[in-house]
Design a protein around this nucleic acid. Structure first.
Lengths: 237, 237
DNA sequence: ATTACTAGCTGTCGAGTAA
DNA sequence: TTTACTCGACAGCTAGTAA
């Protein structure tokens, strides 16, 4: 495997266009701007600005609602992650990157056991084994976060993650997912797994692990479990 | 004036090539790598890698010594600044940029009064008036930093600065310079001024100000003066 | 006023190849 | 082995213009 971690899957010139949109405030919320105005802040022609925006939209990095008098533009979660990847890389390389640790405490709750189904699908299981280095117990532990942790959770959302590809079988399609290697209760290895492209409730964390965590820690619904994630996912030295 | 602060004067695709060089460790010191190896880590052809390196060298962003068996490559100070500019921008926009303050304490020393000569040149004086908002006293205050402050000084060196263009008159050419607005002894406005393209001793800081600082603070050689620089130089909102 | 298509230009790419 | 030239192909740019 020689996969490029730094592969952002975006053309350099489009990355800088996205960066300029962030500069104009399209990261925090929608921004109304015309292609003409945007082209001048970008230092190119109106036509190029228009084309860049279309390409970014196609790539799922911004969302737009085109209307007369300027369009409403907003950088998507994926767009922010694309920008943040470079940020994390630079931080690491320029500041001498101390690996931050994100620690969460969540309450165990029932969940719908959907996770178990996905994990039984051979393809996910293989990818997890390959990328995380363990064979997952066929089920997820669902944790609910306190509202106070949501801001931290949002930041984590932007951090680089290991990607699990989506796939199809005869019956249905499975979306791709991201996962973050984690330490559960400071003892057991596992991972936070986040389904892609779902407007998932950020207060819910699905944890996988090679072992059955409810047994291992004698967990009942409502118990508190600690999840520590260290970031960034370092590339090879 | 509608000058783009974000104008890095570098093509997007070259920026990412520079970023990849940083990834390979060419920021901390020279790195030996062949264009073929580099092209594979860049994900492009050997010809493009070679061309990119030549363009970066022409632009003064990397220095090279081409030799058989791979060239020695190192990112220059200006190259690091180009990367750092984007880093600072992202930090500001993604993390909600608290403006850091760099504070230095330096010992007054004589200096060669070269600075005074430059400041009398009309062009510099005009640019300072325009960009810093004051008419400089025709002379600089020279401070020598403690060795302990040098690391901080090096970091400041990478921060975005106001640019003073170089120029020529009939007799000679004057190089360009960077300056950082500063507060002197927490009371008087002024600026740190750094001549470009000189392998300047980082332990020396040249301070300009609208008034004669030696009188204002009753300074003798060896006295301690405090210089506070807040960064980044925020762009217009 | 917008956004975006078409046409033609320029710059960027990479295979071949020289040094 | 290197690095870097030439040159054909095409991606990205802008001016003009349509919708």
């Amino acid at each position: 495997m020689q996969g490029k971690d730094t592969d952002r899957g975006i053309k350099p010139f489009l990355w800088f266009t996205l960066y300029e949109l962030l500069n104009l405030g399209a990261g925090a919320g929608s921004v109304k701007i015309s292609t003409t105005e945007f082209s001048s802040s970008l230092g190119c022609s109106q036509q190029s600005a228009s084309r860049h925006l279309r390409l970014l939209e196609q790539g799922g990095l911004v969302s737009r609602s085109v209307s007369a008098g300027g369009s409403l533009i907003r950088i998507t979660e994926e767009g922010l992650r694309t920008l943040n990847d470079v940020y994390v890389g630079l931080k690491d390389l320029l500041e001498g990157g101390e690996a931050e640790t994100y620690a969460f405490e969540g309450k165990v709750f029932g969940g719908l056991h959907e996770g178990a189904y996905y994990l039984c699908q051979g393809d996910y299981r293989e990818q997890i084994a390959e990328k995380l280095g363990f064979d997952p117990y066929p089920g997820t532990l669902n944790l609910r976060l306190d509202a106070a942790d949501l801001e931290k959770r949002r930041k984590l959302e932007l951090m680089p993650a290991l990607q699990l590809r989506g796939f199809k079988d005869e019956e249905r399609a499975f979306g791709s997912a991201r996962c973050y290697p984690a330490l559960i209760n400071d003892e057991v290895e596992g991972a936070l797994i986040v389904a892609e492209r779902t407007t998932y409730d950020l207060s819910v964390m699905e944890i996988i692990s090679p072992i059955y965590l409810r047994d291992r820690f004698n967990l009942e619904d409502g118990d508190i479990v600690r999840v520590s994630i260290s970031s960034p996912q370092r590339s090879s030295p």
